[in-house]
Computed example of a mutant assay.
Amino acid sequence: MLSLLLWALVFVGSLALLVKASDVFTDSAERIGVGFGISPFIIGVTIVAVGTSTPELVSSVLAVMKGSPEIVAGNVMGSNVTNIFLILGISAIVGKKMVTSYQLANVDLPLFVGSAFLVSLMVMDGAFSVAEALLCLACLLVYLVYAVRAERVADRVKERFLEEEGIVITEKRRPDLKIYAKLSISLFFLYIGANYTVVSVVRLSEMVGIGTEIIAASAVALGTSLPELVVSVRAAAMNKPELAVGNILGSNIFNALGIMGISALFGTLVISETITGFVMPMMIVATLLYFVVIWEKEITQWEGWMLVIFYVFFLGKLFALF
């Protein structure tokens, strides 16, 4: 009993360190992005999304290297379910009615849905190979290139309009060296936190007799999704729906294509029946619900409550509570 309590404390402490280091990393990366004049949506879909997915990435890579590849799929798919059901739901409740202006329907939403279906099809055989990983990373690269190019076109149009109106464009202030130092230090603590998170998950699963993939899809997924929760809820409260929606969309795309892809480069990922039989279908349902509620470019409080109820159902079924 004492040993179980000790490892539970290690899990909570290492996860807290992982999340805090990720928060510092994301904040530093966001400041760098703002300093270079990147728009809120692109910051959300690239810098913040990748930054807030850092806990999932580091813990997943270390899980493969430590011989627990089954954690990866549970962490990734569980995080995607958590992002949509819990985080988007709470964001909609806090924001009351989030109305977005960015045109998602052209490329972002189809790739968002496509990434979930692509990964689901790849893991149906119970494994995720290097060839499949490279294909996912290629898809992610295409999306990032598109996002950056689309932003550059929008910037040129905006600058041309301002020049025609005679509005002086102020010079962007570049971030100082302290920001880059914080970024580097946070990476070190990310590694420490992720390392002990993986070790404690394996030990706890052995002690309580619960599969590591179940703990990964619930506790680890929730813990590593806390950066997304903080960023999206804060953005919703500040009436910045594009940042909240873009963060979740970009994070899920990066989870499905980037984290699965990068992790598989360190070894073949093993996908358990719990993942293929329940967590994966729930991720597909969550993805389709996101598509439906975002299509009209607004999310109401009632839709937010509905998403949170779905998350409660997800946890209940995962632990066979009903």
Rank of each mutant, 00 (worst) to 15 (best):
A235N: 09
L4R: 11
Y191N: 04
Q103W: 06
V61I: 15
A73L: 05
V48G: 08
A49M: 10
G67A: 04
M65V: 04
V99N: 03
V208N: 10
R173T: 12
G95R: 11
L121V: 06
S22Q: 08
A219Y: 07
S59K: 07
V198M: 04
E303Q: 08
V157E: 15
V50E: 12
G250L: 07
P227R: 13
S101M: 02
V76C: 07
S53H: 04
A236P: 01
K158L: 09
K96C: 01
S129E: 15
G316D: 14
Q301G: 04
Y146R: 11
L111M: 15
V231T: 14
G277L: 06
W302K: 08
T54N: 06
R156I: 01
C136S: 14
S68T: 04
M124H: 11
A216H: 05
I262V: 14
E56I: 01
A127Y: 11
E206H: 04
F310V: 09
I84S: 06
I185M: 15
V72D: 10
S59E: 06
P281M: 10
A221N: 09
V72E: 13
C139D: 05
A154G: 03
F161K: 15
V48F: 01
V198G: 02
A150H: 13
I167G: 03
L321T: 08
G95T: 06
N247Q: 09
S3R: 08
S60C: 03
S79F: 02
V34D: 13
A236R: 13
